[in-house]
Write a protein that binds this DNA or RNA. Structure first.
Lengths: 331, 331
DNA sequence: AAAGCGACTGGAAACGCTTCCAATTCGGAA
DNA sequence: TTCCGAATTGGAAGCGTTTCCAGTCGCTTT
């Protein structure tokens, strides 16, 4: 414990080599003799030396950190299970890559803060997880950092991974038809969101293929309340409907509530299929049959794209993830 | 748009001053003539110049970012409303300080990862929000970065903010006594946690002061199940109890369930006061009277301490936050 | 009118690291 | 034995900022 070892120079001196050699020893050790390597490593271990990241990144132009950016109000981020799972997925992709992963949230309208963060040089790149498609995407894309998106960024030309919404909706609808439903309605999400439009399109396509006409399509705004109200409108217009394909579990939970209130038994009178396979799906009575929307899987894919972007490759994109049907009590 | 402006040198040249002057103009502008200042600013605006943070932090030893560290599994972080609120509190404290705030999670046992992050130089300091007192604190304290804690770090000598657990429990207990309760029991949290021990101590003190003896004290492990079981044991031992002070809303929810099952009316037969004033408090029937445990307030206080630590001051600590009683239906 | 003072300015020295390049060493081929 | 190339090595040149320090210049003070 003679003198403190703080800089690479100190390490080099203590190990009896030049700073250049010490640096090489620390970074992969190409062209370093075993002898020198050992000496450097010993000193490093012994004194717990850590290279100064600022100095390092000044020359390498690379900082060793990426961010998961969630352009949503932080309250929402924590209440919607989609985001944590996405974060977790990204984490696993970067687990053994010695990149640090941090989570950054900001109101979607405050894209300035996010762009500033990207430009600040505190991260090498980011994966953006949002339900708000292109509003932000175009702003973010201006930042000169590699970005990948979970969920299509709309018209912006950037790598993304997306669920195959259309074919998922198709699967759900065909399942209902297969179970004997004929008077089928749909509760839709906002059509300016890919998840909303795609699911409705898939529903309509499947119905069309089966030679059936939807008995109703009502928007539900992706909320419980909206689902509840939509179901009421549907029942008013078509008391005899025998199935509803709902574009999210949250809305489905609302619909279930309405159906119960109106005296319909599920699934005997009306079958319900939700979407997202989220925790609420098991809290309703009966539990919801639902399509998966695996955030962890998608985020992991996006993270891998980012990783290859960072290492200079051009990854193939978009990556399309297939959704699966999970059967529970409601259909 | 002749040549690209990337470095301070470029800016200086374009503005017709020296690099030193340009730097001064960018940083507060002390000892810079209005003329030079204007010239530099014009160039900066025009070309959207951004100083290289690595170079800057290499000399200033200051990176302009702090982290909120939550040493918990990420699933828990997102499911427990305490953390998001704490994060939000920290965010507001740093809102106009041009520090970037990021969130870092890690399993508590993986303190290595956290320490590495702190040492990595990617942040200037951190605020640690945890329910696990000193287990980690001692590991983290080794990192040579300013830290502040939300919740006492135990024996570790570091600035922290903590709820006044004892007097909060006292308030709750005195409220029950004031409402006429005499045969009062307590469902306690783990005694190795400050929140557990402090609340029990406050309960006992208040009872003692009123000349009453607790009719029972049972541990509930801060879980719904634990609270349920504890209430059963209490009722078995003392069927006539007329009030329970429970050390958390989660446990209180369990106790409410047991009381209902055993035919007790709340608050007519048995009054219940919970703790944390968390969302579950309004989901029980009746809703829980509870003591506040405001994570946002605490985190904001911790953030302010960190801020003054970073600017070289020695903040006063510990900061003790007072809890308040929120009256609802259960007592 | 000379001296002194304060506001500005630019040169140059860090900050701690990576990496190019020339020099050295060593073993084996000729 | 001599020569050549591969493996190591250290010197030195940056990377883009900030900041110390010694000047310069225009005024006020005596």
């Amino acid at each position: 414990m003679a003198e403190a070892i703080r800089t690479l120079d100190d390490v080099a001196r203590a190990a009896g080599v030049s700073r250049a050699t010490a640096s090489r020893a620390l970074n992969g050790g190409r062209n370093v003799s075993p002898r020198a390597m050992a000496a450097v490593m010993r000193v490093v271990q012994e004194h717990g030396y850590q290279p100064n990241p600022a100095a390092r990144s000044l020359v390498t132009r690379h900082i060793g950190a990426i961010a998961v950016i969630v352009p949503e109000a932080d309250e929402l981020v924590f209440s919607d299970p989609f985001f944590p799972q996405a974060y977790h997925g990204a984490l696993t992709a970067f687990k053994d890559s010695d990149y640090q992963v941090t989570l950054v949230m900001a109101e979607p309208q405050d894209s300035g803060r996010i762009v500033r963060y990207l430009e600040s040089g505190l991260v090498d790149g980011a994966i953006v997880v949002s339900h708000h498609g292109q509003e932000l995407a175009s702003a973010l894309a201006k930042a000169s950092r590699p970005l990948t998106f979970v969920g299509s960024p709309g018209i912006v030309d950037a790598p993304f991974v997306e669920l195959d919404q259309v074919s998922a909706a198709r699967t759900a609808t065909e399942y209902l038809i297969g179970k004997g439903a004929r008077r089928i309605a749909h509760i839709a999400g906002p059509l300016d969101m890919n998840a909303g439009a795609g699911r409705q399109a898939g529903f309509e396509a499947a119905m069309d293929d089966a030679g059936l006409a939807p008995v109703g399509i009502e928007p539900g705004g992706f909320t419980i309340r909206g689902g509840q109200a939509a179901a009421e409108r549907l029942l008013d217009a078509e008391p005899d409907l025998d199935a509803i394909f709902v574009a999210s579990d949250l809305m489905a939970a609302g619909a279930v509530r309405t159906l119960g209130k109106r005296g319909r038994r599920i699934p005997a009178d009306v079958m319900v299929v939700g979407f997202d396979n989220s925790p609420v799906a098991v809290q309703t009575l009966p539990a919801l049959t639902s399509m998966t929307n695996p955030p962890a899987v998608m985020a992991e894919a996006a993270a891998k794209m980012l990783l290859s972007l960072l290492s200079g490759d051009g990854p193939e994109w978009p990556v399309i993830i297939q959704s699966e049907l999970v059967v529970r009590g409601s259909a």
